[in-house]
Computed example of a mutant assay.
Amino acid sequence: MKKVLLCLLIGVLSVSVFSQAEITEKELKDHMLFLTSEKNAGRYPGGKANRRVVKYLKKEFKNIGVKHFDMGYKQTFNATLRVEKGIDKKPVVKTCNVVGFIEGNDVALKNEYIVLGAHYDHLGLGGPSSKSDKKHTIHYGADDNASGTAALLEIAEKIASQKHLLKRSIIFIAFGAEEQGLLGSKYFVDNPLVPLSQIKLMINMDMVGRMNKEKHVYMGGAGTFPDGVDFMQTLGKSLNLTPIVHAGSVGGSDHVSFYKKGISVLGMHTGGHPQYHKPEDTIDLINFEGQKQVADYIFKTIMKLATTDYNMVFIKQD
């Protein structure tokens, strides 16, 4: 009888571990409910809400099994904030990137890194980057970029469950102060935690929560690594997605900072919408099924590149 109960318990635990490691719509939504909550007030750099979000991200990384570098999970920097026209003095606040890694297993290739990133900040109560006439109103930033941050956590969790397969190492970064001028990613590449020459690809997720009926997934920079355009098109189509793949078109978000340092990049998103940089960018408009499909696509991309000796060299695009 004891043997039967033990087998049942092992079976239940195995199912539980497997289900937790999978990317799920529920977990994506749970992360986003926290990130877009009223108390986090639009995730503006500096202040109590920023610290609360950072604490959440650190806890998730630790629970997942993502290791920290010597300085811990926080890479702290000062961010000079944008101000309305006519205001000369720009406030400076302390914020941070939240960074961790999973080490690969190959003696040589573990010293090569793929970076997966997403910015966690947004516009707070609006400010100069807002496209709304509603002043002092929470800009929830569900798609921009709670969607990418939630995907980052879910993908990290699934990769951690399969870390024994990795040859290359993976760095996960939740960037701060992207909306203030890509400040978090600029700080990271200027103060890298590993030599930049060892970073072979940076994948950035910014607004991945609004997939349309045609299942379009847009990306720029696929031509910055060998056969990248064909690779991303073939993989996307195999997952019943409609990838819109550009060899160049590198711009608009944190991957730009890496590209300027001669690092291959992929900037991933599901397209623009009328709620961009407005208070109406809320969680009720998120396509969680589509977000999960994008996260699975990116997970498979990383695993195909990190579990093989795929030739990773930088190719500059015009």
Rank of each mutant, 00 (worst) to 15 (best):
N287C: 03
L183Q: 13
G104L: 06
G117F: 08
F101S: 05
N50D: 15
R51P: 00
A108L: 06
L109K: 07
G117E: 10
D121R: 01
Y310P: 00
Y310F: 14
N311C: 07
P192H: 00
F18Y: 15
V99A: 01
D206C: 07
A160W: 14
K278T: 11
N40V: 12
L305D: 10
Y218Q: 10
F258Y: 14
F77T: 09
P192S: 06
Y310H: 05
E154L: 01
Y44F: 10
T24G: 11
L152I: 03
I173Y: 11
H164A: 15
G228T: 11
S147C: 04
L125A: 11
P226E: 09
L196E: 10
L33A: 13
L8Q: 08
M219Q: 13
L153P: 00
A150F: 00
R82A: 14
V208A: 03
G220L: 07
S253V: 02
K58M: 12
M268Q: 12
E25S: 15
N204P: 07
N145C: 05
E27D: 14
P45Y: 05
K26M: 14
G184T: 02
N111I: 04
M211C: 08
G127E: 04
Y44K: 05
Q20F: 15
L165H: 15
E157T: 14
G209M: 02
F288W: 09
P279F: 01
A156C: 12
R168V: 08
V4H: 12
L165I: 01
K131S: 06
L266G: 10
S132A: 06
M303F: 08
F69R: 00
H136N: 14
E157R: 15
F231V: 08
I263G: 02
I283Y: 07
G267K: 07
N63L: 15
P192R: 10
I102R: 00
E112N: 10
G181S: 10
S14Y: 12
V93A: 03
K67C: 00
Y73I: 11
V99Y: 01
Y310C: 06
S169G: 03
M303S: 00
S16D: 13
V208R: 09
Y259C: 02
L8V: 09
K26Q: 12
K58D: 14
M268C: 13
T301I: 13
I64G: 01
K39Q: 11
L266N: 08
Q291H: 00
E157A: 10
V217L: 07
L33M: 15
K59V: 13
S249W: 12
T307V: 02
D318C: 00
E214I: 03
A118K: 06
G223H: 06
H255Y: 14
S19G: 02
E27M: 09
N204H: 03
V115P: 07
E154D: 05
L285F: 14
Q233H: 13
G248C: 11
I171F: 02
H136F: 13
G117H: 07
C96H: 01
S132F: 02
V98P: 04
H68K: 12
A79F: 02
E38A: 08
V4L: 13
K59F: 12
K261W: 11
I64W: 04
N311Y: 05
K292T: 03
Q293G: 00
I302F: 13
L6A: 15
I173C: 12
K300A: 12
R168C: 08
K163D: 04
A49N: 13
V217I: 13
V93W: 04
G262M: 02
N287T: 03
I315A: 06
